[in-house]
């Protein structure tokens, strides 16, 4: 308060895109995500029958497939918002934050997908890992976006960072369709897609399909909830950085002993 200049800047600067959703909306999505996740546990573990061939191991599919779907969705959102950032008419740091937040979630769910797939592969295939096209391209996807997240941590101004990350995100996205069609283009140990296969002909028992769809819905709701939360965190992070910078500048300008001014302005 004793440094009026600092407060003037941060207060007079009307930040656009403080949050993605109203707090009420986020809470509703969060509750819906919890409810559908609970439904997934019940339907996936008890209502749906075990598979004829794989037994109970097949139930891992109800979270493995939604995790893979979320990775596609998250990286898709990252690509679209990166393009919206690069496009001059829609250029806004809002898109950069969405891209970063979504990529982080995508990496988490790609890791989950790889891990669950490995846990499933051991009892069903007989191996933890296979060097087939699907598994390798998915691992490449994981590391590509890990690189993207590292790029976001490279010190730069917000605009410079946003631009270079947007370009990287668009290049990395090329791997997503390759991952999805790898099972169709090449011979793999991994089975073809159950629902979105080229014939769009799902050969899955009704209750099992229900569990799968509940899983997809639950994970999507969870994604929306987490995306909003992560976005908000990014805004607060930027705010803090800005305030620290302004405090440091104020210290220099006033020329007083740094510790006192820092204490006074906070």
């Amino acid at each position: 308060m004793s440094a009026p200049g600092t407060d003037m800047v941060s207060d007079a600067d009307p930040r656009s895109g403080e949050r993605l959703m109203a707090p009420v909306a986020r809470r509703i999505v969060g509750v819906l995500a919890l409810v559908t996740l609970a439904a997934l546990v019940i339907v996936g573990l008890w209502v749906a029958p075990p598979d004829e061939f794989q037994g109970d191991a097949q139930r891992l599919m109800y979270i493995h497939v939604p995790a893979a779907w979320l990775a596609y969705l998250a990286f898709g959102v990252t690509a679209v918002s990166s393009a919206l950032y690069l496009w001059p008419r829609t250029r806004s740091l809002v898109w950069d934050r969405v891209a970063g937040a979504s990529a982080e979630l995508g990496v988490v769910f790609t890791a989950l997908c790889l891990l669950l797939g490995s846990l499933w592969g051991r009892p069903v295939w007989g191996v933890w890992w296979a060097w087939d096209a699907r598994l390798v391209t998915t691992a490449v996807l994981f590391f590509l976006y890990l690189g993207y997240l590292a790029l976001r941590r490279v010190p730069a101004t917000l605009d410079v960072r946003a631009k270079r990350c947007a370009i990287a995100a668009l290049i990395a996205f090329i791997d997503v369709p390759i991952v999805h069609f790898s099972v169709t283009w090449w011979r793999t140990l991994h089975q073809e897609a159950t629902v979105f296969n080229p014939e769009l002909d799902a050969e899955i028992h009704g209750t099992m399909a229900l569990a799968l769809w509940i899983g997809v819905l639950a994970f999507t709701l969870l994604y929306v909830y987490l995306l909003d939360l992560r976005y908000r965190l990014e805004v607060l992070d930027e705010d803090r950085d800005e305030r620290e910078l302004e405090a440091a500048i104020a210290d220099r300008v006033q020329g007083g002993p740094p510790r006192e001014t820092v204490g006074a302005s906070s």
């Binding site: 029958p49 075990p50 598979d51 061939f53 097949q58 007989g126 089975q191 159950t194 028992h205 009704g206």
Partner: peptide
């Protein structure tokens, strides 16, 4: 080394449960 290559078809096991549904 033997690996099982499972297809993308999923079915419940017993004929009984199939009949029940």
């Amino acid at each position: 080394r033997i690996m099982i290559r499972h297809g993308n078809e999923y079915e419940p096991p017993e004929v009984d449960s199939e009949k029940a549904s």
